[in-house]
Simulated scan of single mutants.
Amino acid sequence: MPIRSFQTGEGVTWQVWNVMPGLHDVHERRVGYDRRSPEPVIRYTGPERRANTDRRKPPLFLSPHLATGWLTFECPTEKRRLTPIPQHWEQLPEAELERLCGQASPVRPLPPVPRPSP
């Protein structure tokens, strides 16, 4: 994944990179080797407390226009997304990257994840 930086005429520095969903197998499962000790110090003998025994993250479902990937533009104050990814964006001049950044859609920030208190 190439990452580029450019500066706008207003002096804002942006970083841009491409995101290609689905390049790794989201259903990857590691089988065979069990790193846990066969005789743990404390063995739990009660009932299973997990609701779901498969603790892998569920596959990410994207809207169709994002399925082929996007360019992410990020500066210290905002993030934007552009679809589809322009061909040869890695070689574009900075002025063209600035123009594409202007066309990109703002991305709403995710709400902060609450941290458990110690």
Score class of each variant (00 low, 15 high):
P2Y: 05
R4D: 07
G9V: 03
G11R: 03
G11V: 01
V12C: 02
V12L: 07
V12N: 03
W14N: 00
Q15A: 10
Q15P: 02
Q15S: 14
Q15D: 15
V16S: 09
W17Y: 13
W17F: 13
N18R: 14
N18E: 15
V19C: 11
M20L: 15
G22S: 08
L23T: 15
L23S: 11
L23N: 09
L23R: 15
H24K: 12
D25A: 09
E28R: 12
E28S: 11
R29W: 10
R30H: 14
G32D: 08
R35I: 11
E39W: 08
P40L: 13
V41M: 08
I42A: 14
R43N: 08
Y44V: 09
Y44S: 09
T45C: 06
T45I: 08
G46Q: 04
P47D: 15
E48V: 12
E48F: 06
R50L: 14
R50C: 11
A51H: 12
N52I: 09
R55T: 05
R56K: 11
R56M: 06
P59T: 13
P59M: 04
F61A: 15
L62Y: 09
S63K: 13
P64Y: 05
P64G: 05
H65Q: 13
A67N: 06
T68A: 12
G69W: 07
W70E: 00
W70Y: 02
L71K: 07
F73P: 04
F73T: 01
F73W: 05
T77P: 01
E78T: 04
K79S: 11
K79Y: 01
K79T: 10
R81V: 05
L82K: 05
T83R: 04
P86Y: 02
Q87Y: 03
Q87E: 12
Q87G: 05
Q87S: 11
H88G: 00
W89E: 03
Q91I: 09
P93E: 05
A95K: 07
E98S: 08
R99T: 03
R99I: 01
G102A: 04
V107H: 06
R108N: 03
R108D: 10
P109V: 01
L110P: 05
P111Y: 00
V113M: 09
R115M: 09
R115G: 07
P116T: 14
P116K: 11
S117Q: 14
S117R: 13
